[in-house]
Nucleic acid binder design. Structure first.
Lengths: 220, 220
DNA sequence: CAACCGCTGACACCGCCCTGACACCGTGCC
DNA sequence: GGCACGGTGTCAGGGCGGTGTCAGCGGTTG
């Protein structure tokens, strides 16, 4: 899952980003609204975590812009205020969810996950294919009832493949959805991650290679 | 927008339903979980407003069932409790959003609206001709139900022929659509690829040659 | 602070099969 | 028969993806 954190207080921004990365998300950070808009036209994010009180371009404006442009991303608005009026305002601007500071980190994660599920078309909280299943919320994966111990990247790739179940997913697409903006586009890390994933998934093989492009998960 | 309200306390249920109707939504009401499931198989709802504390079948169970069956609807969970743990739990079960009682009605509406604006993805293009079919998304081809193992070029050519079903496709056109711009225009590779494709497609022949021109796919 | 561990990503190597060229053959038309 | 076009058999090479390994990094633990 690809997340953009927009928060001007750098310490907070970093802390959120690192926390989310530990949860296996690919996180980019920007410190102001204009930067946010630039990133949003360049990259497809599943979820934008948006501080409402930004210097310069206000969070509300960013939110409105995201809502007007054909929205690809879900917006989770962060704010210091917490009156019902604020919450309704936020949702009215096109935010998809709302969280007031101070917040509990596990709740932030839960809400981002819930939003992320909606942005992926087949919006199933539990993704399945054959005897392989992942629970995005709990970040656990199974094969024929057996729990798999997956690393963050392995999980991200598996999740991505499953969310496009049976469809071919290009390596570039995996890279885009599972890694942050600083990744070398010629990296071989997807190849390596797929390999590790295959080993952990065991037999019979369920991740298929499509020459000249990418991978597909499916029983045949 | 089609909404199902699941709430055992009838006064509350009616009040919510009427309020939503005033907002222009089509609302059905049921008072318990089993009824909810029945309605869900019969009708496609955009949003389900689900009370967590239901007599009989618990809200969590309903939620889980919605999540397991290919979910069409988004779930907004209503609850009396409002601890962080509860909220995380709810989202973890596959609810898409969460609201604790007592809630502000305008916030309920805003959240339902936020959940409601979603589109269904377009159908995947499957090209067919006679007993030959190609699924572009999955990069899979079949002949009379039997999976064909095609290489990238073979697949590209077959796809191209099928997309111009029954029409003559010139070799140059195949070259243009299946190869990159640097290909030698006098190459014989299309000829070779067609041959390999014919072998894999087997009998009866379905790719026909048009002298001086190209190829056509069709049953006769 | 040192030792350790798991995750990540780079890199080198290897083997396969895809690719495309070429030579030859079959066929229909002049 | 000769020619032109397309089908067939075959072969070399190279590209792509799989595999094994290693080093760096960050977090954790004693």
């Amino acid at each position: 899952m690809r997340v953009l954190v927009v928060e001007d207080f750098e310490v907070m921004a970093r802390s959120i980003a690192n926390g989310l990365r530990r949860e296996g998300m690919a996180v980019d950070v920007v410190l102001d609204g204009n930067d946010a808009l630039e990133h949003l036209v360049a990259t497809r994010y599943d979820v934008v975590v948006l501080d409402r009180d930004l210097p310069g371009l206000h969070g509300d404006d960013v939110c409105r812009r995201i809502a007007t442009d054909g929205r690809e991303s879900r917006v989770l608005m962060l704010t210091a205020a917490d009156t019902v009026k604020d919450r309704v305002d936020g949702l009215g601007l096109g935010a998809d969810d709302y969280l007031s500071k101070p917040f509990d980190f596990s709740e932030l994660v839960a809400r981002i996950r819930a939003l992320g599920r909606r942005s992926n078309r087949p919006l199933q909280p539990i993704l399945e294919c054959g005897d392989v299943s992942v629970d995005s919320n709990r970040r656990i994966a199974f094969r024929s009832g057996c729990r798999l111990e997956l690393s963050a990247k392995e999980f991200a790739v598996l999740e991505c493949l499953l969310s496009s179940k049976e469809r071919v997913v290009l390596s570039d697409e995996l890279l885009e959805r599972g890694w942050d903006e600083f990744v070398d586009p010629y990296t071989t890390t997807v190849k390596t991650t797929i390999r590790r994933l295959r080993i952990k998934l065991g037999d019979p093989p369920i991740i298929h290679t499509v020459r000249e492009g990418g991978y597909r998960i499916g029983e045949l």
